[in-house]
Every structure is written in C-alpha cells, then in structure tokens.
Design a protein around this nucleic acid. Structure first.
Lengths: 214, 214
DNA sequence: GAAAATTTTGACCGGATGGACAAACGTTAG
DNA sequence: CTAACGTTTGTCCATCCGGTCAAAATTTTC
C-alpha cells in the first residue's frame, strides 16, 4: 500500500521538510537579488544558517533549488489570470485582474524578480513551461476577452498585447522598484506608492488619457 | 597647447579607438545576455575576436567595460523623453513618445536588457545616475504633463505613474522578448509584433478600454 | 539504551575566472 | 637602421565556486 511502482513521492522526515523550506526561502532572497549565475551556494547556505555541505545534503545541485523555486513560482504567478472569469462585467473583471496582479508585485517582489531574471536571460530553464502551461492559459483567456470584444462590451483591440501590458505595468513595480523609488523620492511609503499606482492603472486601462467632453 | 593640467581626455591612437569600440560592441552582446556576473572576460574577448590579455590591454578591469557601456546607454535611453515637448498637441506628443520608446525597444533590445539587468539587481553601479540625471529629467517632464492636465488637455492622473507605465509597456517587448514570442507563436515576425504592439499601445493610452457609446 | 538511520561538519578537489606580467612582435619616427 | 613606442600573446597565479567524501554528531526506532 505504501509502495507504488512509479514515481513515488519522496518520503521526507520532519527535519527534511523544515530545512528544505528554510533553504528555499533563503535561495529566493539570494537568487532574486543576484540572478542564478550571480548567486553562490555559500551565500544561500549562510542566509539559511547552515554550512554548504549541509545544504547540499538537502539539494544535491544548485540548479535543483532554482528549479523547485521556479516551479512553485509559476503557480502563484498565474493564479490571478486563472481567476479572470467570463461571468460578470468585463471592465470589472479586468480591473480586479489588474489589482490582483499589482498586489502580487507588492507582496511577492522577490518572486517577480526571480521570474524577470529568468526571462531576461532567455528563459533557458523554463522555456517548456512558457510554451506549454503559460501559453495555454493565455490562449484560453484571450478567447474570453475576444468574446467580450465581439459583444461590444469592451473596446476592440489585440487581447494578447492587452495581457502583456497588464503584466508589464504591474510587474514594473516589483522589478524596477529601486528606480521607481528613486524617481518618486522618499515622500510616499510603499503603501502610498501602490495605492497611487492602482488608481492610475485603473484609470489608464478603463478610460485612457483623452479628456472626456463636458 | 596640447597639454592641459586637469583631466586631459585620454589621447588615443586610431587602433585604440577602433578596438575599444569593437570590445564595447561585443561586451554589450555578452552582458545583456548574461548579466554582469554571468559574463566572462573570455566570452567578451572571443566575441570581439581577440585574446583575453589583449582585451585587458584596452580595458583594465571587467567593470570598466560595463561602466562605459552603461554611461553611454543612459544618453540614448533618455533621448526620447528629452524630446517630449510642451509645444504641439499633448495627445500627439505622448503618442510619439510611446512610438519612439517602442522603436528603441525594437532597435536596441540589448541596451534595454543591459539596463533591466542593472536595475533588477538593485542598480548597484548606477544609483547616482538614477537619482540625479534621470530623476531631474523626469521631474522636468512631469511638470510639462501637469500643465497639460491643468489645462484640461489630457485626463487628470498621476504623471509619474504615466511615465512608468510607458516605460514598462514599451521595454517589455525588449526585456521579455522570449516570453512575448513564445506566447504569440511564430506566426508574426518581429515587424508584425511591433506593429501590433504600437497599434495596441496607442489605443490603450489614448482611449482606454471602455467602449464608446454609439 | 543500543542499533540504525539521519543530519552535520571539516577537509578537500578540479575547473573556471579575473587579472598580472614579461617577453615577443609590429610600427613608426628620426 | 635603430630606438622608441604601441600592440599582442603565452604563461602563470590566486581566488572563487560547485560539488564530493568520510567521519563525527545527532536523532529516531525498537
């Protein structure tokens, strides 16, 4: 009963589960700040409060840590888009999608940067996921958006580029955080920045910039 | 006459000028694809068609190459924003700014990625430039945009976030190119992608998504 | 509480990488 | 022709880094 022939889930002790989690947390910090190549096992080990050989007891190779991290990431990352639903008002749906995505940039900036780092370098380690899972999901949601357009419920434009623009604008606040902060100055704290951004993006996507006739 | 007391521009032979240019071109390729840490002097030397010690004859340290590259980059990079002008129709001005910025993403993707890499890692090497030159320019243009808003010539929103959103959406096509390509599929070549993007962004920024009443 | 299994550590290895250097090789000016 | 200067190369070094290994320390199991 406890043994299966194929791909049994690795049996893990309490310590293994805890330590692996500790390592992944530390690795997220280090990878997102330095990229895969820029991060060293020693750095991760130190951030996790253990020796390098000890870390390598839990993850045999540096790449294994990275891979685990990325695999988890993508689920979290695509969750907001998965929620985009055909029922309800299209503009409201899109507005909430933008808000959710912006909240992810605020609450998980390290995950965003990890992803950005990976894509920037040509996605060497996650190309299959991009071409598979991600593309499928996008195609799916594009169909929904096209439906809205055909019904005249939102403007008629390119749905792919609409999704890209939402990704770009929201992730910008995580990936380019230092630049945003430097330009805005220290006046507004993190909360204020994201409030302003949310307000702005909502208006941009719904109304655009052309002034309404009185 | 040929000697000045302070900081004389380095006197360079013809060969030096040529070879330095060759190295910078090669380094742009390698740095933008691998990040600073991920790039090796050997790779750059090979891409430039010379031996490592020979390369080090022209640039003493890896960082020197990177620094030179980044310094040049910022000028090119901010040129489109510099052109944003108070004269002329605001919507037209913004439209051309977006188009120019998108053209830069298309024509100089390596520069875009070099910049993105640097910011992603916390801008360790160019923080002063961001807080100085870049911020000053942005503040300047924000004033212009605010004028337009006060005059009711464009919608009233946050001008800083407007600029961020233009940066984000346009640079996305350079920095996340592999993802964009993977999602769109191979149907449309580079030209088609950028045409579609330009059309979409123009509509988004000017009109937004809310359908016009008939 | 002893045997078995798991976890931790220190020492070590081989290859990559940034950089130094002196010697050799051109090139040019007098 | 040759001295001076600029350019190129082969060799070498120290450090870093990913990863191994055997032995010690600890925890779990019976």
């Amino acid at each position: 009963m406890t043994t299966t022939v194929k791909a049994a889930a690795p049996r893990r002790t309490r310590i293994q589960t805890e330590k692996r989690e500790l390592i992944l947390e530390a690795a997220l910090e280090v990878f997102s700040a330095n990229g895969f190549r820029g991060a060293t096992i020693d750095q991760i080990a130190e951030a996790a409060g253990m020796s390098k050989p000890n870390l390598l007891y839990y993850f045999h190779r540096k790449e294994d840590i990275h891979e685990t991290l990325i695999q988890r990431l993508l689920d979290t990352w695509l969750a907001p888009l998965r929620e985009l639903d055909d029922i309800g008002d299209p503009l409201t749906e899109l507005r909430s999608y933008i808000r959710r995505k912006l909240e992810m940039a605020r609450d998980f900036p390290r995950e965003s940067r990890l992803f950005a780092n990976e894509i920037l370098q040509g996605a060497p380690r996650i190309m299959p996921l991009i071409e598979g899972e991600l593309k499928t999901l996008v195609d799916d949601k594009v169909a929904v958006i096209k439906g809205w357009m055909r019904a005249g419920r939102i403007m008629h434009t390119d749905p792919y580029h609409l999704i890209f623009s939402i990704w770009a604008t929201t992730q910008h606040y995580a990936d380019f955080d230092v630049q945003v902060r430097a330009v805005l100055g220290p006046d507004r704290g993190s909360d204020g920045r994201f409030e302003d951004a949310a307000r702005f993006l909502e208006q941009l996507f719904i109304e655009g910039l052309r002034p309404k006739p009185e």
